[in-house]
Amino acid sequence: MTRAVETAVFAAGAVCWRVIDGRIHVLVIHRTVYGDVTIPKGKVDPGETLPQTAVREIAEETGLDVALGVPIGVSRYKMPSGRTKVVHYWAAHVTDEAVQRSTFRPNSEVAALEWVTIKRARTHLTYEPDVAILDAFAALVDQGVTETFALIVLRHGKAVERSKWDGPDASRPLADRGVAQAAALVPMLRAWKPRRLVSSPAVRCVTTITPLSAAIGRPIKRDAGISQDDWERGEAEVRRVIGKRVRVGKTAVVCSHRPLMGEIVREVALATGTPLAGYADDAALLEPGDFSIVHLSATNPSSGIIAIETHSPRV
């Protein structure tokens, strides 16, 4: 007789933080049913990705609309059922505007919200895995790199094959799967609240981020400096494009082509004084529709690349 394999339960959340009276405070929630104190988090809904879950759960439990920041760890522990729970966490800076717009009221799930210092949070939290995640966030605080922005390096969605397209390569459209990927990217990328959208002028790139542009109300800046045509002619201007994005210091999506992925990530490293290593090649190994998020300090440029994470749309 075969035994059923118990699958893990996946969840996501964030250490929400803000500055109060000159000191960093983090948000803990007092849960009604369990009578415990924990970090906001929740289970992944069917069809959801982990970043989507983190933002949705924070909104549902705290009424706060947040943008994800740096990934700060994964906790694993056994549930009373015997199944393993795997929880992915990010840092999330809560703005004063988000606090003012919060819709939280005590309810059957969460009795209260409390902003406390990191030191006090360690004594408040009920569970050791939560304390370990808090310690990972505290390490960022000690390094002075809590306030961050991200450059989201996106490879365009699946395109119609060259052999099946009779026309200029730059006008080659997305395949049906690429169109589905473009739609699936919207809720994922919104988790980081991008402020700028930069794309190769190629139809397959622009079309990939058009749904995101419509959803967040941000225009797409077309820049031939990251186009495949210019790259093939030896005229690409990746350094100019990426250098500007690093200088501006706003979270941005940069949509380009497979041959340029490695150069884009390397230019982020060079623009921030980060030693080049294997991480750059790993972050550039993207399938159509995949993206890597390169996290940088908004206040301490000498910190270099703080973290990189890679995601795929579920299509």
Rank of each mutant, 00 (worst) to 15 (best):
Q100S: 13
Q100P: 03
R101H: 13
S102D: 08
S102G: 08
T103M: 08
F104G: 09
R105V: 12
R105W: 09
V110N: 09
L113Q: 12
I118T: 14
A121W: 14
R122I: 00
R122H: 11
T126W: 00
E128D: 01
E128N: 00
P129Q: 00
P129W: 00
A132P: 00
A132L: 01
I133Q: 02
L134N: 02
L134A: 06
F137C: 08
A138M: 05
A139W: 11
L140W: 13
V141S: 07
V141M: 05
Q143R: 15
G144L: 04
E147Q: 11
E147R: 13
E147I: 05
F149E: 09
F149N: 02
A150Q: 08
A150H: 03
I152R: 01
L154C: 07
L154V: 11
H156Y: 06
G157M: 05
G157C: 07
G157K: 12
K158N: 14
A159K: 14
A159F: 02
A159D: 05
V160P: 11
V160L: 13
E161I: 03
R162F: 04
R162G: 13
G167E: 06
P168L: 08
P168M: 07
S171I: 00
S171W: 05
P173M: 03
L174Y: 07
L174H: 11
R177K: 12
G178Q: 11
G178H: 11
V179N: 05
Q181E: 14
A182P: 08
